[in-house]
Structures are given as C-alpha cells and as structure tokens.
Design a protein around this nucleic acid. Structure first.
Lengths: 351, 351
DNA sequence: CTGAAAGCGCTTACAG
DNA sequence: CTGAAAGCGCTTACAG
C-alpha cells in the first residue's frame, strides 16, 4: 500500500473540488449532508489520513504539549506523567516528553528544540541544577514568546506563569509535628534533592515545627548516589536521632534499609516519614508513612490549566494552584493517640 | 516580543531573497561564505527559529519517533524509555511517548492518532491485552503503510519488522536451574503479566528446567491487583514450595513481603528470583536476585535500529536482536557452590 | 451548495 | 553566487 493519499487525490476520484472534500471531512455546514456522507465514506474506504504537518502549518497549532521533567524513575514524576498523558489524550492533545535528568544544560537544549512551533505549550518541573544555580533564562524565553507555560512541583517565583504545587511548607510542618507528637525529640530533615524549591520548603516547614518545640535542628543533604549511610547509621546507633523526615522516597527507603541492617527497629527506635506514595515505600517492610503528593492530580490539573490557557479560557493573571495534601500513616511511624493529635500548635494555621 | 519571525521577514530586513536566506541558514555551498555569515548573524539577532511544521511538510519527515509502551511505572519500561529518549535526542530526534496501559483499545487509538505523518517511525512494546487476544491489526497497519517499526520486549511473530528481545527462554531455564542447584525442589512460576510473549517464554524456559529434573510443575498467574497472597502464603507455610521464579519485579516483591510477614525466611525457606533490576527489588530486604533485562540497552538499540531503518541504512530483511542477559545474584537466592554451578544440563545450550 | 484561489512557512530545482 | 517560482497538503475567505 502506498503512503498516505492526499486531499487532492481524493477529490479527483470523487469528481469534486479539494475545498469541498476538506469542508466535508471537517463537517462544515456549508456542504450538503448527502455530499458529506458520501465523501466521508470514500475517504474512509481509501484510508485517508490528513497530513498533520500541513494542518499544523495552516492552523498554527500542533495539538501537542511539551513536557519537561527531571526524570521518570522517581514515582512522583512517573505518576504525574501518567496524569498528564491521560488527561492530554482525553482532550485531544499529544504529549512530547523530554527528560532533563536534572541537568540545566539538557533542559536548555530541550526547550530550544521545542521552541519552533512544535508544541502549543509547555508543562515543566524544573531541573535540580536549574534551581540550584537559579539559571532560568531558558524558561523565561518561553514566556517571552508568549507561549503558554505551566510549572508544577519544582517551580520558581521568578517565572510569571501558571503553577501547580502542594502546600509544601505546611505539610512538612504537620508531618514533623506528628513525629513530635509520637515522642520524637531528635528529628533529621533528610534530602536527596537539595536546593530544589520543594526541598527548601519542606526543610523550612520541618524546622518551624522543630523550633516551636525547642528541639535540635538537624539537616542532612546529599546529591545523587552519595547517600551518607555511615553518618545516619552512626547517629542512629548512638541514639542521637529518633525521627526522620525525608524529602524523597528513595532516601527514605535506603535509610530504613540501612537502619534495619544496623539492627534498629522502625518505628520503635526511629520513625521515618517521607514524600511520594510510591510502590517502593508501600511494599517495604515496614511500609513507609508518607505525605501524599497527589502526583496524578498534579499532572491532571497541569494539563487542564495549560489547555485552558492555550484555548484562551483564562484571564491574563497567572493562576497558582496550591493543592492540599494529607499524611498517610503506614508502618514506619508510631501511632498517635487520636485525641491529642490535632493540638494547640497546629491551630494557628487555620485562623 | 511577538511570535516567531519568518524567513520572509528576515529576507526583507536583509534585502535578499527568501531562497538565499534559506540556503544560507542551511549552509548551502551555493551561497558565498560572507553572505552566509551575515545572514546567520542577523537571524540569530532576530531570534529566528524555523517553523517545524513547514519544514516537516516540505521535507516529508518530522524527526520524531512514536513510542508506545504499556506503562512507565514498571522499572523496565521506565529505564527502557530513558535509553530511548537519550539515544533519540543524541541523534536529533524527538520522542512522542504514549502509554497504552496494557489496553488494546488505547493502543489502537494511539496508533491511529500518530499515523498521520506525525512520526517517522514507531517503537512499540505491545499491550498485554493485544497479546492476550492476539489482536494485532492496528500494528500491521503500520507496516502496511511501510512506516518503520521496531518492536521490543513484548513482540509478536505475526508482525514483520525489526525486533529487540532478550534470550528469554534460555535465561528462564538458567535461572530455574540455578534454583534447582541450590536445593529447590518445588518451584513456582509466578506471573503478573500472563499471556504476554515474555511471560510465555519465561514460563516455557522455567518448565523445561523443571521437567528435566522431574520436579512438579507449578504455575500461578494473575492479572492486575489480584495478587494471590493467600494461596502463596498457604503453599509456603505448608512447605509445598521452596523456590519462585517471578516474571515481574512487583510480583516478586509482594511475594517476599507476604512470605516474610508469614514468618518465613528468604532465601533459607524459599528462594525468589525475578526479572528487572529495579530500585524496588534492589532496596528490599533481602535484595531481590534478578535476571537483568538490560532495559536501557534495549531502548538504545531500538532507537538505533529504527533510525537506521528510517534513514535507509538497512537491507530489506527485518533484524532480530536477541540480547544476552545475565543473572544478578543478590540476597533472595542461596549461594551455589561455584564449582558445580555450570553442570551437565546446561551444556546443551552451547553446542 | 460548490469551487477557484490564496496562503500557511518552508525547500529546491531551475534560470540567470 | 543570487533569485523567481513551484510546491509540500492542507484551510478558508470569497465568488458564484
């Protein structure tokens, strides 16, 4: 079978004009119902498929969105991507996925490549390096061209666009308070994604709770594969820590593994709570208590917002969605007595 | 800043023809070096970005490849996708990722949507439902249009195209023999992805080894969330099984969790080996012994083969890559005495 | 209700 | 070395 038949060829075999065929296939009321029907039949018979490039050129839109995320191995991004892909497809859009690998350089390359009318808009979660070095000109480029852009999860105040985030700081504070309520007095904030917006916010929330209770402030941050197993093990064995708030699932799981192998009990000796309700933490023994990030929902709202923006349904001002979240207590944290759980210190958030 | 400047606008401000600008930017030797240089400078100054749709229309290629995979949560597909994305980008191609969710219907929809000159070729790993029902007309459609197609991992003999797979059956046999060598006499083949090509091949390999040793044949297959925890627990507690070959990482990890919670010891009471060298199995206690699927490599080779095909570097005949693999022994299987490890029964494979 | 014509933004034979 | 013209495959005002 030869490559796609064109409108022209179709029109010839139908003995009508190209315009008529085009209009008929697009269900234009200009064309009589009978003609429309016949043309559609013949088109189907000939397996006519319109050429997307020609349509894009003419219509000045591609029905594609560019998605740039740091990676797909972390459960949060994989699940967010599921939400993005599913929602976009439902609305008739296709998704171009690009993985920055947390590299500024790759992120710049990717955006440069997509900036030539390949996509109608962008959904981005910033690379760690871009955030750490605060190098965001390539992102600003997008808004300069007035191309719709939604940032989610890893966002920046410097970019003027729609944003989807969690109520990070509050959630981290609540999670830390939960640890304190169950008797933790030496809590570490542990992050394998340092200098990202989310990690900084979680750290801030965690420290707020710690300070409110006059507990010692402890922070451990590392990059990539440099998990400080020895340090954490030593602190734990020496009973210097009894609670951990981890910014990412992988850090949390590796921590639990390290501690268990060192003979410690979770949550009896040390409570661990983390972000991302992923399969790895869910199936670990003990299962990992987490702050749900609503990954799928973040992806879904990102697409909905972007498409609203693309299709002009939104007013000028950028929107900031700050999703509420909740703690899912599993086995890696101790039970709180449910009565005292929501005590004095939290109330100030709800005034 | 207004939306992208066109060649025409550029040519006007340069006082040369559109053709000259186009050729200059494409480094055509037809144009003098001096002119080329000047035109490029002005183009850069004006932030000229060529319109991809127009180029695609003219050039009859999109420099995009369509990737259709069952999901991105399983580590194998996520890692394969990393390999695909990385390699494609390196070769100047962009990737359109579509997730079939193992649904025939979605897979059909996706391919229909991409078949209109949106991509220069396809890389696909078949949906479970498509394989289980052997409904492959939508895939054959691609080859009928002579659009380059590479199948990887989940492939079908009915499709005439380039394919990348593991040496599944042999690997499963070797893994099973390893279990037998370490004393397992009641081995289950466990699969959460029944009726896929890979699962069938792994089952066949496993059964071959089991039969060679006159051991009982036991198969447990389930779909989706219906993990048969009770059954497996009962069999294990009753000492009816002492070894498991799992077709997928998730099944293996849930199995280990179930058994450990039932008070059994891995690998002392039961050995578990699985596919996919993923983070979930790696960080479990005990860490999961696996058959490495070389996910990244499969992705990389898929792209290389596809691009060779697209760019006409390959002869007509489809290529079948059958990658060798290896077993990575971690903590969920017992140690074999290294001398007897490669005994009689395996030798026949290497004649 | 149908069709001729222009045009989307490029590339490339062809002419000069 | 440079430019005019045709054409990729569509859509859509406009004319009839």
């Amino acid at each position: 079978m030869k490559r796609n038949i064109t409108l022209k060829a179709l029109s010839k075999s139908l003995n009508v004009s190209v315009s008529t065929v085009s209009k008929a296939l697009n269900d234009s009321p200009e064309i009589s119902v009978a003609t429309r029907k016949k043309i559609k039949e013949i088109a189907a018979l000939n397996n006519y498929i319109p050429n997307a490039s020609a349509q894009n050129l003419k219509n000045k839109k591609t029905k594609k969105i560019g998605v740039v995320i740091p990676g797909i191995l972390p459960h949060f991004f994989a699940e967010a991507l599921n939400g993005i892909e599913e929602t976009a497809n439902k609305m008739g859009y296709q998704v171009m996925i690009c993985i920055s690998k947390d590299s500024l350089n790759r992120e710049q390359e990717i955006i440069k490549n997509l900036l030539n009318n390949q996509v109608d808009g962008f959904i981005i979660s910033l690379a760690q390096e871009s955030q750490a070095t605060n190098n965001l000109n390539h992102i600003k480029e997008i808004t300069k061209w007035k191309i719709p852009l939604v940032l989610f999860d890893r966002v920046s105040e410097e970019i003027n666009c729609d944003k989807i985030v969690l109520n990070e700081e509050l959630q981290a504070e609540l999670a830390t308070l939960d640890l304190i309520k169950t008797g933790c007095e030496n809590i570490i904030y542990l992050s394998g994604i340092p200098n990202t917006s989310v990690s900084e916010q979680r750290k801030a929330g965690c420290l707020t709770a710690i300070r409110e209770h006059g507990l010692p402030e402890r922070i451990i941050e590392f990059e990539g594969e440099n998990f400080p197993a020895h340090l954490i093990k030593k602190l734990a064995v020496d009973k210097k820590i009894d609670g951990i708030l981890a910014a990412d699932e992988l850090s949390a799981v590796i921590t639990m593994k390290t501690l268990i192998k060192a003979g410690l009990k979770i949550p009896e000796d040390i409570s661990v709570i983390s972000y991302t309700n992923g399969t790895m933490g869910s199936h670990f023994i003990p299962s990992l208590s987490v702050i749900d990030q609503q990954a799928h929902m973040q992806g879904k709202i990102s697409v909905e917002t972007l498409l609203d923006r693309i299709e002009g349904h939104l007013l000028m001002d950028p929107i900031l969605y700050r999703l509420k979240s909740k703690i899912i207590h599993k086995e890696s944290t101790r039970k709180t007595s449910s009565i005292s759980q929501r005590g004095l210190l939290i109330s100030k958030f709800f005034n």
